[in-house]
Design a protein around this nucleic acid. Structure first.
Lengths: 216, 216
DNA sequence: CCTGTTTTGTCGGATATCCGACAAACAAAT
DNA sequence: ATTTGTTTGTCGGATATCCGACAAAACAGG
């Protein structure tokens, strides 16, 4: 999933943004490391260069994943959430001061910033809608359906889907318990909605029937 | 509650924003009217001039209130949610095209825009956190506590709170059923946490004990 | 190949919340 | 004062989801 729908790395290639590139510092991150947490008040803006990065909320011993950033995604740390590297990778970071300066000087950056924020906002509204209106089964099928559409590969008349998530991680995206998600998924397997094909690899024989499971 | 934390009406008074004011058209709205809905694709940006306006998500026959805008709050309609007038009032509206033009020409507007979006985003994260981590009782006490702090009036050694919401409206803010909220509230009354003082008027004898109810 | 660690499946009891239903209480209008 | 409509309180059954627990399975490293 492209979290914000806009690839900032591409944007940075534009000639108009020459001076913008200099503002960012590259920073290596190691798999599993928590890069930012809500308590530290240093405000940074960063773009994912390589690797995957998870944005999540934490409360006591529970976690809720808001989204997983991929190369090209931009994020700001002053939004009160945790940021964790899911793989070894690198970020382009800069502080908020520089961003403000850039916004004044580079109008294009400005528009992009607003666009990214708008996308993230839209995404969080759909998360709220899911949590408020739908049960876990609907959220699960909905998630699989969306992923199948955006990153599934057509194979054997069906769709193959590489999620690259453990059940636990998936449950944190859905806002549910590991056990519940595990049970629901296996129910879906028994009903033939999905077929398991190895570690976090799924085959969806008929996308249509998955869709009707989402909206009965 | 100030939804975005920034009063755009004040900002518009600034001399630098003379030409910005001309971009907005005033529009009257009647109580109860649905001003925008997600299906219409006309993208507008508006500022509440007078009255109250409710932003909410809808799904089948359920509704979830994201926030209630008050004079000075800015919002954009292309975020996939409903906008309803809670009272007779007026909005300053403009289309997205003009906003884009303004953003290019008036840097201050730009920064404000980003700031507002950031605030709204932060708010929706806290909504997600509530839905994902807390039960309804915690959300209810938390809401009352926050409201008491921000808009409560100290009286008789306690705090008086005018919510101006029916139980049904409150339940839509909390993401729960009317019945559940009603029952929980009456439990709180029995425990002496809150005292009912007429239609949507509450008295909190001891804010401290309400706070411990939020975080036991 | 063996061994420790991570991931997954499943069960059964506890419980928060929903849902339908109904009557009481309240407010507004005639 | 009477009617009408809205808001509130409460009950009891249905159910989705959590939680703790445990073992099977899968994986990784030596």
């Amino acid at each position: 999933m492209k979290f914000s729908g806009i690839n900032l790395l591409d944007e940075l290639q534009r000639a108009e943004l020459d001076d913008l590139r200099d503002v960012f510092n590259s920073r290596q991150v190691k798999k599993g490391a928590i890069i930012f947490s809500p308590d530290q008040e240093e405000n940074l803006v960063f773009i994912v260069e390589t690797g995957k990065v998870r944005i999540y909320l934490g409360y006591e011993d529970k976690e809720f994943t808001l989204g997983i950033l991929q190369p090209g995604d931009l994020y700001s740390t002053h939004a009160g959430c945790f940021v964790q590297a899911l793989e070894d990778g690198s970020l382009l970071t800069t502080d908020v001061q520089s961003v403000k300066r850039c916004m004044a000087e580079v109008p294009l950056f400005n528009r992009t910033m607003v666009r990214v924020l708008g996308k993230i906002l839209q995404n969080s509204f759909s998360v709220i809608g899911g949590l408020a209106f739908k049960d876990i089964y609907a959220r699960l099928t909905g998630y699989l359906y969306k992923e199948a559409q955006s990153s599934g590969v057509p194979v054997d008349g069906g769709i193959e889907l590489e999620l690259d998530l453990t059940i636990e991680q998936l449950s944190q995206i859905l806002g549910a318990t590991r056990q519940t998600v595990s049970t629901l998924l296996n129910n879906m397997v028994r009903e033939g909605l999905v077929v398991k094909r190895g570690r976090s690899k799924w085959f969806i024989p008929d996308l249509k029937s998955l869709e009707t499971a989402v909206n009965p």
